[in-house]
Amino acid sequence: MNTIAVLGSANMDLVVRQARLPLPGETIFGAGFSTVPGGKGLNQAVAAARLGADVTFLGAVGADAYGAELRTLLTTEGIRSTELATADAPTGTAHISVVDSGENSIVVVSGANASVTTLSVEQRAVVADAAFLVMQCELPTRALAEGIAVARAAGVFTVLTPAPVVPLPAGFLASVDLVIPNQIEAAELTGESDPIRAAETLSAGQTWAIVTLGAEGSVVAYDGEALGLAPARPVTAVDTTAAGDTFVGALMAHLAVNFVRGTALTPDDMIEAVRFATVASSVSVTRTGATSSMPTRAEVDAILAQSLRHG
């Protein structure tokens, strides 16, 4: 099976459920509190592994209780983490407010993640041996650029979720094989409010782009041309935390199982992977939490099989 190397953040999510966001200077009561393993990198790694992929995680955690808990989770999920560094800084945290509508707001404190400014010899070897390198923007850009350089030299397919949107070096996005922003991120990166135009702009130069639109589905584009709008699966959302990360992890799991390294992805390959990822993401928003909400491959396959039976 093709290996996915995830170079990304690992956080402990501190989640408060509440009726609404407080006004500036206002104190309100919350309805509940929980700690859930998270971070965009760890989320995507867990989603991919739970959906059947062979995953190695690269990043850093602190020498603290949260770091130990995240390492245990990775082991439990079958994700290799032998090259996960231990930093002097505390493990990263994300402070998440989830309101009754299911929407959320998040403040991230990078902690150990900010220490990942370069890759070790061993981490570079992991990247070079993988079929896919999956990244986000919660690690320093310098480390991401190094990962891309190693991957490109080895013929590894590179994937970036440009979240949060941060200043990127010239040519950075063009050096990535697949970019997966949400609609807001795509608009910020391109200046295009129309997600189709944004996807076309991001995909220029033989790059794949998938712009996710939440309940509206996603736009798929390649080499400056939109291939179409992939519809969402209608569900009642209770918590959208990590829905995008579930989408990315599921997409990569599908490609890892079906993609032959060294061959070009076709539009049909990508659209089929997007369909699989859409179902996985739709399941995640019906549950609370980040990693705790992610489905298994059996769950997604059952939903896809049922949809085929019903046309």
Rank of each mutant, 00 (worst) to 15 (best):
A130C: 08
A63D: 14
T27H: 13
A280Y: 01
P22T: 09
V109N: 11
A145S: 14
V274E: 06
S34K: 12
A215H: 13
S110T: 07
Q136R: 03
R71Y: 03
V166E: 07
P181I: 09
T266H: 05
E188M: 11
L160K: 11
G25H: 12
S110F: 09
D64S: 06
S292C: 09
S97G: 15
E192A: 12
M270T: 08
S34L: 08
D129I: 08
L23Y: 07
L21C: 05
A199L: 10
Q44N: 00
N43D: 02
L168I: 10
V46E: 02
L160N: 13
P195H: 01
A204E: 12
S120R: 14
A198P: 12
A128P: 10
A125M: 10
F259W: 15
E216Q: 07
L229Q: 15
G41I: 06
A45Y: 00
T93E: 09
R233F: 15
G102C: 04
S218W: 07
S97D: 14
V159C: 15
L168G: 06
L173N: 06
I106W: 07
A87C: 07
A242G: 04
Y66T: 03
S281K: 01
L227G: 15
V179H: 03
G78D: 02
V6E: 02
V260P: 05
Q183N: 07
I196K: 15
G147Q: 10
T76W: 10
S120Y: 12
A163Y: 07
M12P: 00
V121T: 15
E138S: 00
V248N: 02
A65Q: 13
P267D: 11
G249W: 05
D245P: 02
D268P: 06
R50Q: 01
T72G: 09
I180A: 01
Y66C: 04
V176N: 08
A290I: 08
G311V: 01
P195G: 06
G191H: 14
P140S: 11
Q306R: 14
R124M: 14
T82Y: 09
D64N: 10
A237D: 04
E122G: 08
V15G: 06
N11V: 00
G52F: 05
A226H: 03
S105R: 15
I271H: 13
